[in-house]
């Protein structure tokens, strides 16, 4: 069982201090961006991570790679504790666990050629030493992502958003990673180009046996690429399950509301649907409600919700949800 899990987060926390104004800048509180997340990413799967802005999904993706420092809990990568890694061990991790960023305009160095950008990880990790070997590896990587090898001598500004994102993917794959975090990797692309990149990511997964964490606010895209989906709300994973099962039969009231809000590109279905329109806004992560953090907007909130912080519990085959509607059991201790 342990063997098929590549990345495992246990009670992971990333809290950012809130300081007072003035000279002393005392710590007066914390933004609990990630606040007690248990999550497993299995080898060879795509785990979709969805949630609205500010829910902590990007911070969680970063924390799994230790691109932000967790303030509590642990992350295991292939059995090794990432949170305790030394610098050399972290450097080795950076080859095996990589990130594809959202904005291909900001994540490529405008003064480096595409070839230099893709070659950089090879140099850092001492792979394919020698200029000729490196150049041929760069050409191979560019062709792998559907670009012509000749583009290596060109600069990012000569490319469209979709092509830049391909460069970003080629760079991420340079060190032959096992695990790729795609952080809103299609969010800034046009619809027709999004489809190209989604198809490419899936082809690469088949070809290279990659494991993906696909972080996105776009539920339709997440459902399309994912084997399993995890839903985040206010720093916590509130539901996890097989993609189609979770999409067809969501068990957490937040997942239900989120799914019902996603517009469907079919006029007949849109006319027929009934939306659960959530009242109000997401509370601040610096002032998380007591008990269940969704209770302030939940249409089903009842007695135990303000007092007991619900734990993830089984609600279907391979599906878990953190909600008292499924029985007030296994509640997690209140975290202060």
């Amino acid at each position: 069982m342990t063997d098929d899990v590549l990345v495992r987060a246990r009670d992971l926390q990333v809290h950012f201090p809130v300081r007072s104004k003035g000279l002393r800048r005392k710590v007066v509180g914390a933004v609990r961006a990630v606040d007690g997340v248990d999550l497993e990413v299995r080898r060879g799967e795509t785990l979709g991570l969805v949630g609205e802005s500010g829910c902590g999904k990007s911070t969680l993706g970063n924390a799994l790679l230790r691109l932000v420092e967790p303030t509590g809990g642990t992350v295991e990568f292939d059995g090794a504790d990432v949170t305790a890694m030394s610098r050399p061990a972290l450097r080795a991790l950076r080859r095996r666990a990589v990130m594809v960023f959202q904005d291909p305009y900001a994540s490529l160095d405008p003064r480096a050629t595409v070839g230099q950008t893709v070659a950089e990880p090879l140099q850092v990790h001492g792979l394919h030493p020698g200029a000729r070997a490196r150049a041929s590896r760069v050409a191979e990587l560019l062709e792998l992502v559907g670009l012509d090898a000749s583009v290596a001598s060109r600069y990012p500004h000569e490319f469209s958003g979709g092509q830049r994102q391909r460069v970003g993917i080629a760079r991420a794959l340079a060190g032959e990673p096992d695990f790729v975090v795609c952080d809103e990797a299609i969010a800034s692309l046009d619809v027709s180009v999004q489809a190209q990149v989604l198809n490419l990511l899936r082809r690469l997964q088949d070809q290279l046996g990659l494991t993906y964490l696909f972080v996105s606010h776009d539920l339709a895209a997440v459902r399309h690429v994912s084997d399993r989906i995890a839903v985040m709300y206010l720093g916590r994973v509130v539901e996890v399950g097989p993609a189609e099962q979770l999409a067809a039969d969501p068990q957490h009231p937040y997942t239900q509301a989120l799914l019902s809000a996603v517009p469907v590109p079919s006029p007949a279905l849109e006319r027929a649907r009934r939306r659960t329109v959530l009242a109000g806004d997401v509370p601040s992560a610096a002032a998380v409600p007591s008990g269940c953090r969704f209770r302030t907007r939940c249409p089903h909130a009842f007695d135990p919700c303000p007092d007991v912080d619900p734990a993830l519990q089984a609600v279907g085959a391979g599906q878990t949800a953190a909600c008292h509607l499924h029985g007030v059991v296994g509640s997690r201790e209140a975290r202060v």
Binding site: S192, Q196, N199, H224, V225, E244, A248, V262, S266
Partner: peptide
């Protein structure tokens, strides 16, 4: 055809979604 939601409407349970029709 590039919209995942329309393509996935034809996806069977437990089946992998078909590729999107990219332009």
């Amino acid at each position: 055809g590039a919209l995942p939601a329309r393509v996935d409407a034809q996806r069977g349970p437990g089946r992998r979604a078909p590729d999107l029709v990219a332009i």
